[in-house]
């Protein structure tokens, strides 16, 4: 494998990795606060893709308006899912919340299937993301540059919110010890809603960029990315935002490089995440950036 080939694969790997990372942050934050695997999180990617698609194709909105709308509506949906499905059973055993989450995920997928139909729709690619920049032997798709820049900006914003603002501090405190934080007069539900909104908005942004890269919108498109993003979150250390982003990068790079090094293994690409998860659970269950959370 020569130098420029490796660099080329690095570009591809980072692009996919950014998308996994954006999705993983939402999983990680919700799990950190509620100890709940939000199975519906991957489907938010699908919802935002559809909203973006309809905004552009049916309502002829300009790109930025349509994308902003998709992100805002998906964030709202995230809050609604929490209020409607998870809040009423916050006190009951964890397994009940998991089952509800599966139900919500299936509901989103099948409502999309019934109302919109199962035929994949091709996502229109805006002009400014097509083309590629060629540096030496390496061609960097413009889309990859966009994905990378947008991810870095969103990640920085998200980190700033969680580290510096009052609600971010409340969120981190909540993930440590819910009861004490409530005694301190923090409105728990407001913080949880904010967590869902933030995570969903990141998933929505990821979803739109996902569709530009793989332009086929269909009801079940969020399942596999969702599954992998959760693995990325575990890989980085669940509950840690920078860890989730890093886990996403590692997963993206691993998938791309394994296929690049051993092309005959390309059929096993979707299994890489799973084996990484097993390895990490066996060797370092708290993940790369994770700290031991109190049970």
């Amino acid at each position: 494998m020569d130098y420029s080939f490796a660099l080329q694969q690095l570009v591809y790997g980072l692009t996919v990795g950014c998308l996994y990372g954006l999705l993983a942050i939402g999983y990680s934050m919700v799990y950190g606060v509620l100890r709940l695997i939000n199975f519906a999180h991957g489907d938010l990617l699908m919802v935002s893709a559809y909203i973006g698609f309809f905004g552009i194709v049916i309502f002829h909105l300009p790109w930025p308006v349509s994308f902003a709308g998709a992100i805002a509506l998906t964030a709202l949906l995230g809050i609604l899912i929490d209020r409607g499905a998870y809040k009423p059973i916050r006190k009951s055993p964890r397994i009940n919340a998991l089952i509800t989450a599966i139900g919500v995920s299936f509901l989103l997928e099948n409502v999309a299937l019934v109302t919109i139909g199962g035929r994949p729709k091709s996502f229109p690619t805006p002009g400014f993301v097509s083309g590629a920049i060629v540096v030496g032997d390496v061609s960097i798709p413009t889309l990859s540059v966009w994905v990378f820049v947008v991810t870095v900006v969103l990640l920085t914003l998200c980190m700033a919110v969680v580290k510096k603002t009052r609600i971010g501090i409340a969120m981190r405190a909540l993930s440590r010890d819910m009861e004490t934080v409530m005694l301190m007069g923090v409105d728990k539900d407001r913080v949880i809603s904010f967590t869902f909104a933030l995570g969903s908005a990141l998933a929505a942004a990821g979803g739109i960029m996902w569709c530009m890269k793989y332009p086929a919108v269909e009801p079940f498109m969020g399942v596999i990315p969702g599954l992998k993003a959760f693995v990325a979150a575990v890989l980085g250390g669940i509950g840690s935002i920078s860890g989730a982003a890093m886990g996403g990068m590692i997963l993206g790079l691993a998938e791309v490089f394994i296929v690049a090094v051993q092309p005959e293994w390309s059929g096993y690409r979707d299994a890489v995440a799973f084996f990484l998860m097993i390895v990490i659970l066996l060797t370092r269950p708290t993940g790369i950036m994770g700290e031991r959370l109190p049970d």
Binding site: T100, G103, L107, N110
Partner: peptide, 18 residues
Amino acid sequence: IPGMRMVLFSVILILVML
């Protein structure tokens, strides 16, 4: 409508859980 049963089943699942 194909898929209608699954919508119904997921609503039932969530309602039973809630």
